[in-house]
Write a protein that binds this DNA or RNA. Structure first.
Length: 180
DNA sequence: GCCAACGTTGGC
DNA sequence: GCCAACGTTGGC
């Protein structure tokens, strides 16, 4: 089911914890939710075309003090129609989107593990090896951003996590076979 | 299809 | 709450 590590991609999903936090994700049934409400075409294109089963997600809290990476999630459902676009009572309602050709999509993610240490934005900025991260580029506002494998590795390590735990699902980390 | 006005994002 | 950056809208 899940992409193997060589073809897996990594992402950073931004959220404002006042509306939806990593803790909310963890508390959801089976720690799974639909990542809906994305209303930016570039972010939509990523969700629709490039976010695949098994991909890794850094969950980032924005508009909070301090902003930063709070946890890791996994993609468990690929692009599907985002129903909130058709709901007039939903804050993400889009009157211009037609059912015959919906504009907006969602994916499903599942919490894997919270960062052992919250990684504030300024700590990411301070790491020269992360200078190329999309998040840190001037004027960057995309809510769905690609993360390079090396950046993923660095962020997890800086957050006190073992990147190998992602493969183990965060519950029963796979151990390397002993070689003697 | 240009581009000014306006709205939103999000760090500070 | 400010405001830089950027996306979207809409008149022309």
């Amino acid at each position: 089911v899940a992409a193997n590590a060589s073809e897996r991609r990594y992402w950073l999903f931004k959220t404002e914890p006042e509306s939806f936090s990593y803790e909310d994700l963890v508390r959801a049934p089976r720690s799974r939710i639909a990542w809906d409400g994305v209303r930016n075409y570039q972010a939509r294109n990523s969700l629709r075309d490039d976010v695949k089963l098994g991909d890794g997600v850094l969950v980032y809290h924005s508009s909070t003090e301090p902003p930063g990476v709070v946890g890791v999630a996994r993609v468990v459902g690929e692009s599907a129609v985002d129903p909130t676009q058709f709901d007039p009572r939903d804050e993400h309602f889009d009157a211009g989107s037609e059912r015959a050709s919906p504009r907006w999509v969602q994916v499903e993610i599942e919490a894997v593990f919270a960062m052992p240490r919250f990684l504030p934005l300024d700590e990411l900025r301070a790491d020269p090896s992360l200078a190329g991260m999309a998040l840190l580029q001037r004027g960057q506002r995309l809510s769905i951003q690609p993360v390079k494998p090396a950046e993923w590795q660095t962020v997890l390590e800086r957050g006190g996590a073992d990147p190998a735990d992602f493969d183990g699902g965060g519950k029963a980390p796979k151990r390397k076979p002993r070689i003697r």
